[in-house]
Design a protein around this nucleic acid. Sequence first.
DNA 1: GAATCGCGTGACAACGATGTCAATATCTCG
DNA 2: CGAGATATTGACATCGTTGTCACGCGATTC
Lengths: 338, 338
Amino acid sequence: MSADDASVRRPTLTQVAQLAGVSLKTASRALNREPNVAPSTGRRVRDAADLLGYRLNGIARELRRGATSALVGLVSGDLANPFYSAVASGIERELRQHGLLLITANNDEDAALERSLVDAFLERRVRALLVIPSGSDHEYLSIEGNRGVPFVFLDRPPDGLAADAVLIDNAGGARSAAEHLLARGHRRIALVADLRRMAPQKGRIDGFIQAMRAAGNDAWEPYVRTDVHDVRHAERAVRELLDLDPAPTAIFTTNNRLTTGALRGMRDIEDKPALIGFDDFDLADVLGTTVVAHDMTALGREAARLAYERISGHTGPARTIVISTSIIARGSGERPPK
Amino acid sequence: MSADDASVRRPTLTQVAQLAGVSLKTASRALNREPNVAPSTGRRVRDAADLLGYRLNGIARELRRGATSALVGLVSGDLANPFYSAVASGIERELRQHGLLLITANNDEDAALERSLVDAFLERRVRALLVIPSGSDHEYLSIEGNRGVPFVFLDRPPDGLAADAVLIDNAGGARSAAEHLLARGHRRIALVADLRRMAPQKGRIDGFIQAMRAAGNDAWEPYVRTDVHDVRHAERAVRELLDLDPAPTAIFTTNNRLTTGALRGMRDIEDKPALIGFDDFDLADVLGTTVVAHDMTALGREAARLAYERISGHTGPARTIVISTSIIARGSGERPPK
DNA sequence: GAATCGCGTGACAACGATGTCAATATCTCG
DNA sequence: CGAGATATTGACATCGTTGTCACGCGATTC
C-alpha cells in the first residue's frame, strides 16, 4: 500500500517539457493556451502533462505573477452560528463568480485570536480581507489598509480606521419592532439584549429606546436586560422577567441566540407574552415567531462585491452599505397584551 | 485619500536588510529567530521591519520550503445548511490546533463544479483535501491520492477509490428510529427520504426497511416517499401522506431539510402523527421534535484528525470512522398511534 | 603556540512558474 | 526574388524567500 513514499514530488513543468521534447517556456505556453504555439507542439505537451499527472503549481505562479493570491480571507465569529454561515455562503458565491476562493477562520469572539488570524491571512497575501470583528480596536489594521490589501467590515463598523463596511439597519429594525408592539397596545415591553459593547447591539438597544421614548412610554424601564450573552442566560432572563409583577406583556430579543433562549424560557408558559426577535431563523415560521428579518446572504454578497471592486482597482473613500430590515409577522408579535 | 497607488509593493526582505545594513540572509535569520544571530543585529533588523511595515511573503516561503501550503481544503455542499457549517466548524477548530487553515468552497451539489473546485485546491497545493462529495464517481481523484495529497471523505463514502472516510451510522440510526416507533405501537409508518442515489440516504432507507421487516411489519409499504429533495417538496409529500386513508400514524424523515418540511406540512394538523427526524437541529427542543442525533462537530473533528495524521506522514490502508447516533426523545416521537 | 571550535555573517543557488527579448523559420507582398 | 512581417521557439532573468556552504574571528584546548 505504502509503496509510494508520501513525499514523492509532483512533476514539474520542466519534466513535462523534457518529456515533450520542448523548452520549459514552450511547455508553459502550451498549457496556458497562449497564442503562437504550433498545434502539434501543443498537443504533444498536453499529452506529456496528462501522462505525468502534471498539475500547475499555483504557488509558484502566484509568486511570479505578483505575489498575490486568488484568495480572499474571512475572519468571523463562529461558523456554527447560522448567521455567520449564511453570510459566508453569500460571500463565497459572489467571489466564485470572479474566480476567487474564500478562506475562513473563526475567531471564537476572541480579539487576540482575531488579530493573529488576520496576520496569518495577510502573510498568505490574500487579495482582500473580510472581517466580522470581535475586538473593538481595529487600528492595528490601518497600516495594512494603506498597503493595498482592502478590508471590508461586516455587521460591525470599523473603529479607528476608514474602511468599507456592510451593516444592518439595526436601529431602524429595532425601532420598527418596538412600534409594532406599541401599535398593538403593549406598554410593558421587555428588552433582552446581548453585550452592549458590540455595535450592532448598541444600535438595536438605542433604536428600541428611541421608539419607546417617542411614544411617551417609559413603562419598559424595569424590563431591560442587557449583556445577556448566551442562550441559557437568555432563557433565565426571560423566566425572571415573566415572574415580575406586573410582568411584561411583550419581549423584544436582539439577536437569534437570545430569541432561541426566549423561546425556551417561554416554552411551558401558557399565556405567552408577545415576542419579536431580531434576525430571522430557520423554523420561525413553524414556531410562529415574528422577527425583524434582513437578508444575511445579501450582506455577504455586498461585502464580497465591495471587496472585489477594490481588488479591481477602485479607489476612493470608504463606503458603507446598510442592509434594510423588515418585520415578518408570524403571530408571536401580534399577540395582544394580557 | 488615494494618494497611495493601490499597487504599491509591499516591502521585501531585501529592503529590510538594506535598511538594517545587513545581508538578506541575516535579516531572514533574525526575523525567523534562528540561533546564531547577535542580539544587537537581531534588534536592528526587527526595528527596520517594523518601520517598513514588513510582512513575510508566505507564498515565497512556501515555494522555497517545498511548494506545499499550510492550507487544508474543504469542498462541501452548501455552507448555509447548518449541517455543513457545524461540520466545517469542527474541522476548522481541529486544524487550527496544528497551525493549519481551512479553505472552503461550496459545490452547490453539482458534481462538475465539485471537480473544478477540487482542481483549484490542488493547484493551490493544499496539504489535504476534505470532501463531502456530491458526485458519485470519485475515480478521477485516484491519481491524486497516490501523489501525496491525502483525501478524507465526509458523510459519504468514496467510490472507486480507497481513502479515509468519516461516516455516520445511517442504517443504525434509521433502524433505531423505526424501532422507537414500532415499540410505541405504530404500524403505518411513513418514510420521507431524499435522493436515493446519495449513500447516506440509501443507508437510512435500508435501515428503516430492515427494522420494519424484522418486526414482520409491511404496513409501511404504501407510505414510502423517496427522492424528496427540498423543503417544499417534503411539505407537500407529508400533506399528501396525511390525506391518505388510512393515514400513517407516524413519519420518519431522513434529514434535517425534510424534517423542516414535515414540520411545516403538519403545522395546521390538529392530531399530529408521531415524527422522528434524522439530524438534530437548533430549536428541536422548543418544538418538541424527537430526532436521531449525531455529533456533527465530532464528524468534522475526526475528519480533520485523520487528515492531519496523513499530513504528518502516516501511511497505511484507508480507514473509516463511524459516528454513532442516538435518539433524543422530545415528545414528537412518543405520540401514540391514533 | 598551533590546532580546534563555535559564533556571526554573507554569497549564491534553488523552489517552479512566467515575462522579456532575441533567434530562427516561414510567409507575404511588390 | 528581396524585404519586411509573422509565426514558433528557446535562453535567461526574475518573483521573495530559505538552504548550503564558506569565511573570518575570537575563545578554548592540549
